[in-house]
C-alpha cells in the first residue's frame, strides 16, 4: 500500500521531469553565474575574477539615482500598458468573440504589430513622431491644432508617453490572442442559460464572463508587467533613453553599464535586483489572484 503510494508520487514527478531537467541544465548555471559575477568587478573579458563583496549592491542602492529613475519610467509605462493596452485588448477580444462579420480578418490583423520586426516599427514611428515631416504633426495641422505640434520623441514632456504608445500598439496583439482563447473556452451553454433567464449583455459579461476569465486576466496582467518592465528594443530604436534620462528603463541601464562602461559585475548586480523586484511583483499578483478566486 505504502509502496503503491510512493510509486504514484514518483509517477507524478515524471510529468515535470523533462521541464526540470532542462531548467537544471540551462537555467541554473547562468543564474549561478550571474549571482557570482554580481559580487565581482569583472569587466567581461579578463580571465580572473576579483571579488568585492556587496559593494555593487551597496552602490546600486545608495548611489545610483539614474537606475531608480529608470525603474520609475518602467513603472509608468507598465501602468499605462496594464490599463490602456489591456482594456483595448479585452474590448477587441470581446468584439471578436461574438459572431461579427469579418471576425476572422480582424483576428489576423490585430496580430500584425507583434509580428512586425523592430526595424519596421522603429522606422514607422520615427516618421509618425518626426518634428518636421511627421504624420502626427500633419494631422494636428489638418484639424487646426498646429500649436500642439512638436518633435514628440525629443520633447521631455511627451517622449515617455510617445514611447509608451508605441509599446502598447506593438503589444496589444499578445493580450488579444490570449484573451480571445480564454473567451472561446467559456462554454456557450452558460451564455444560453443566462439568456434564457433574461440577462442582458452587461449582466452576462459581469456574471458569466468576468468570473470565468479572472485567471486569464491574471495571466495577461503578469505577462504585461513582465513584458513591459523589460521593454528595450523600442527605446533603442526611437530615443536611445533620451532626451536626458527621460526614457531610460532598467534594461537600457543594464546594457549600457555592461557594454558602454564594461562593468559586467555591476550590470549583473542590477539584473539580480531588478529580477527580484519583478519576482516580488509577480508573487503579490499571484497571491492577490488566489484571494480573489476564493471570494
Amino acid at each position: 500500500m505504502n509502496l503503491h503510494r510512493v510509486r504514484h508520487i514518483v509517477g507524478n514527478y515524471v510529468f515535470v521531469l523533462p521541464a526540470l531537467l532542462l531548467f537544471l541544465i540551462f537555467s541554473i548555471y547562468p543564474f549561478y553565474k550571474v549571482f557570482q559575477l554580481s559580487i565581482t568587478d569583472w569587466d567581461g573579458i579578463s580571465p580572473q575574477l576579483n571579488y568585492i563583496g556587496l559593494a555593487n549592491f551597496i552602490d546600486l542602492f545608495t548611489d545610483n539615482p539614474v537606475f531608480w529613475h529608470s525603474m520609475r519610467n518602467a513603472f509608468y509605462v507598465t501602468f499605462l500598458a496594464l490599463t490602456v493596452q489591456n482594456f483595448l485588448a479585452l474590448g477587441l477580444a470581446l468584439l471578436c468573440d461574438r459572431d461579427i462579420k469579418g471576425g476572422n480578418v480582424y483576428r489576423v490583423i490585430f496580430y500584425l504589430p507583434p509580428v512586425l520586426s523592430g526595424i519596421v516599427v522603429g522606422l514607422i514611428w520615427n516618421w509618425i513622431y518626426d518634428g518636421n515631416y511627421g504624420l502626427l504633426n500633419h494631422f494636428l495641422a489638418f484639424i487646426g491644432l498646429e500649436d500642439l505640434s512638436r518633435a514628440w520623441l525629443a520633447d521631455s514632456r511627451t517622449a515617455l508617453i510617445a514611447v509608451s504608445i508605441i509599446h502598447m500598439w506593438k503589444g496589444f496583439g499578445w493580450g488579444f490572442v490570449i484573451l480571445l482563447a480564454g473567451l472561446q473556452s467559456i462554454p456557450r451553454e452558460l451564455y444560453e442559460a443566462a439568456r434564457v433567464d433574461g440577462a442582458n449583455a452587461w449582466v452576462m459579461f459581469r456574471h458569466v464572463t468576468v468570473p470565468l476569465m479572472i485567471p486569464v486576466f491574471i495571466l495577461v496582467s503578469i505577462l504585461t508587467i513582465l513584458g513591459t518592465m523589460q521593454v528595450f528594443d523600442i527605446i533603442i530604436a526611437t530615443t536611445g533613453g533620451g532626451p536626458g534620462y527621460h526614457t531610460e528603463v532598467p534594461i537600457t541601464r543594464i546594457v549600457s553599464t555592461m557594454i558602454g562602461s564594461s562593468k559586467f559585475g555591476y550590470a549583473c548586480a542590477m539584473g539580480v535586483v531588478f529580477g527580484l523586484i519583478l519576482l516580488a511583483i509577480s508573487m503579490v499578483q499571484i497571491k492577490a489572484s488566489k484571494m480573489m478566486r476564493q471570494v
Binding site: 521541464a19 540551462f26 559575477l37 519576482l279
Partner: peptide, 24 residues
C-alpha cells in the same frame, strides 16, 4: 515551490547569461 522556481526564469533578465550559456 517548484512551480514558482520554474516560472521565475521569466522574471530575471540575465545580462550575462549569454556568456554563461556559451561556456555551458
Amino acid at each position: 515551490v517548484l512551480f514558482l522556481v520554474l516560472i521565475s526564469t521569466m522574471m530575471i533578465p540575465i545580462p550575462g547569461s549569454f556568456i554563461a550559456l556559451y561556456v555551458l
